[in-house]
Design a protein around this nucleic acid. Structure first.
Lengths: 224, 224
DNA sequence: ACAAAAGTGTTAAGAATACACCCATGT
DNA sequence: ACATGGGTGTATTCTTAACACTTTTGT
């Protein structure tokens, strides 16, 4: 087999989520070439021999969108798609990662791909099957935040309970009851109260909490 | 980039589970070449251009172990490993699948790889990081059976409640309470009672139930 | 008769849900 | 003073967990 073996093309793609204005956004670029020239797509590219998929992903993200890997608070492999007609010339296998970040500003003019975050609720038609990939990633994220502390990836180290609740609501796609949410979150021991208060408007200041962990931990209880 | 692009080697590997004698077993082969010559390993091989990973997997399974794809009651992608030194000559990326089957007899003499099912509890040292892959697959399976009907993949269409309980126990790795188990399983509406009884020994015959679905369905309740 | 697995309910504890008002601040 | 989001408790329902004896069969 090896003598006649020729490998398919290997690519990597990234679904990078960020909360902007309490809405879940995803990082997209404009395709500069056929196929789907001019359409929006997930950032991605070729994975050459000798480079791991994660390292290729980080390199490509930086070059196409200016997003540095140290801005990603969480990155994990999502799924490998092998039926994508990414390149009309032949078979391509794409390893897709999902990443979370916060407070990242992307300047579209940085590259010809004009990277930008766009709200999930207002996406135009995307290239390839990238809409389906984003849907899948969102499903995975929603499931992930309900049995891990993954939500920290979308938030600063210090949060108010309302900020946290907004983040869960954006990911899960539905409203949560304030009192029940607080009871459960505090019971999970995810957060440590500080003595500081956030004063961000014409209302009572909110107590600030600290995430106990900034790395992925699995819990046995659920948020849904 | 494309002009100088050379793809890594792409491989596929399979973690195939089956219950034998109420124990979870995994399909292994003996490596006939270096590296790890003589050690047991997951069945796998090269994925050439033009073939999807699933189709390559099915082809390789058949050729190396004699297991036909129509014996797999469930097969799904598990994870893509890209740091495996599968081939000492260079970078290899391996897409790993997990599959479930039942009542499959493998004849080791069928190929020089001497395929066989072995109980998870008694595995020798395996080639590469295949032990870690199996651990990961088992974890995924345990999680899967607790929120889907995936357990059907390990059992015949018709089962008794005790058989079903044994299967859950083998996958989850711990005992379940008989009365609570029955209440919950029947509440899930996974099964349909028949009017037949199984008489397989010196004891009261057990009512036989039928799986309502032989395809993966997600439930909202949990077995744990 | 006995061994072996099948079958069957109740109670208690814990978890989830529904729900409405006062508090502290900025303007 | 009013608008805005922050903060708090209870009662009810539902879910889970713990637990032991009788039934039916083959030998």
């Amino acid at each position: 087999m090896e003598y006649s073996y020729e490998a398919p093309v290997l690519t990597v793609d990234a679904v990078i989520f960020q909360l902007i204005d309490h809405q879940l956004n995803v990082l997209l670029i404009k395709r500069s070439r056929e196929p789907f020239k001019g359409d929006l797509a997930l950032p991605g590219g070729y994975n050459p021999k000798g480079e791991t998929t994660l390292s290729a992903l980080e390199r490509i993200l930086l070059s196409k969108t200016g997003l540095n890997k140290n801005k990603l608070k969480l990155i994990e492999q999502l799924y490998t798609f092998d039926t994508i007609a990414r390149d009309p010339r032949g078979h391509a296998v794409s390893v897709v990662y999902m990443g979370l970040c916060r407070n990242v500003k992307i300047t579209p003019s940085i590259t010809k791909e004009q990277p930008r975050f766009m709200p999930l609720s207002k996406l135009p038609n995307l290239a390839f099957d990238h809409q389906a990939i984003i849907d899948y990633a969102l499903e995975r994220l929603a499931s992930k935040v309900s049995y891990t502390n993954a939500i920290f990836g979308l938030l600063p180290k210090e949060v108010t309970l309302t900020q946290l609740q907004r983040a869960y609501e954006a990911v899960l796609g539905h409203k949560l009851d304030k009192r029940n949410f607080r009871k459960r979150i505090l019971a999970l021991d995810l957060l440590k109260p500080t003595t500081k208060y956030s004063t961000d408007g014409a209302h009572r200041p909110a107590l600030i909490y600290l995430f106990r962990k900034q790395s992925l931990e699995t819990s046995n209880k659920l948020i849904d």
